[in-house]
Design a protein around this nucleic acid. Sequence first.
DNA 1: GTCTATAGGCTGATAGAC
DNA 2: GTCTATCAGCCTATAGAC
Lengths: 207, 207
Amino acid sequence: MGSVERRERQKADLRAQLLDAARTIVQEHGLEGLTMRKIAEAVEYAPGTIYLHFPSRDDLVRELVRDGFLELVNYLKPAAQIADPRERLAAIGYAYARFGVERPATYRTIFLQPPDISRALADMRPGCEKGPDGDGVGAFGILEQTVAELIARGDFRQLPATVVAETIWGWLHGLVALRATCDQKMLTDFDTSVRLAIEGVHRAFAA
Amino acid sequence: MGSVERRERQKADLRAQLLDAARTIVQEHGLEGLTMRKIAEAVEYAPGTIYLHFPSRDDLVRELVRDGFLELVNYLKPAAQIADPRERLAAIGYAYARFGVERPATYRTIFLQPPDISRALADMRPGCEKGPDGDGVGAFGILEQTVAELIARGDFRQLPATVVAETIWGWLHGLVALRATCDQKMLTDFDTSVRLAIEGVHRAFAA
DNA sequence: GTCTATAGGCTGATAGAC
DNA sequence: GTCTATCAGCCTATAGAC
């Protein structure tokens, strides 16, 4: 039975190795540059071997996307601990922006795919926005909850929290996405535009 | 010589037909789904014939991107005519958003490409942002000029116009890009979030 | 479990007949 | 100018030997 266990572990190890290799390739060449051959080459196995661990490339990609969302949530977690919702909102904004610039390939993978791929991945997205550990702990849930508190406290205008949260998300998404695409053409320092956006959010939605 | 002229015109016609066909394919399948074979099939010519009019696929794509920027400028032109800079800024925002939702494939083509393609296209972007007809008439120039007027008039805070304009662009870009990628997962009505963003811009940058 | 080999498809681009 | 035919390369996925 010991040998069976070892075999199981080795199989799990290879699976993890494959995902790791895939992540590295995505960092370098983007999701569109990820091929089964490149993964196989990276772990020094034959291409066909991958299909013993993943039924198809799509399934492997779905796993990468899921991990990408978890990574985002990990960036946001420290900010989510802050008690004061005003401070917390600012911290969430900075953390989100930091995720975008520190992990541009991950950001692209989860948020900037062409429509067909996006559509294929859409059914897993609620679980990620709302969080895999229950409602409200996922990335979007953290933001929405904070906005709701600010509205309840009277700091923010009486608008639906979801609407405000999605609008704020959009603003930050735009700044990050622009960096991911036209970085060398942007004239403004990234930190400056993020700071302006976060201050702007408070001014824009203040009661 | 008359026949030479006719031949020239036919050649020009085919060139235009090829670009038209390419545009249609991009609308349906995105830039990544654009292939020489599909273009050839659409105009009922052999694939190799395209290479008599374009040296490579990349050159054809560059032409499409250039056209995309011109299309954006055309969307913004009516708004750019408005005398009052406050009204003009709002109109520019709505027009930009309308361009994004009415021409999602064009939007993707010019603003949401993976880094390698974006980098390859980067050198033509200044000519488009600043406008092909001279400084300040291009898409970004229209926005920047309007912001500069609002600052000069004392309506907006004393910040560099470029910085404010890029930040505003980012906000709108985020809302449009989110629609282009996660449309079916967004809970807020698009018009509502655009309106909130444009009001928010005024509140955020008001002196 | 892992290999080699390959099927069957797509791609951009080119050579040479007409 | 336009065609047919094709090169050379990539891709996902599978079949069958070991």
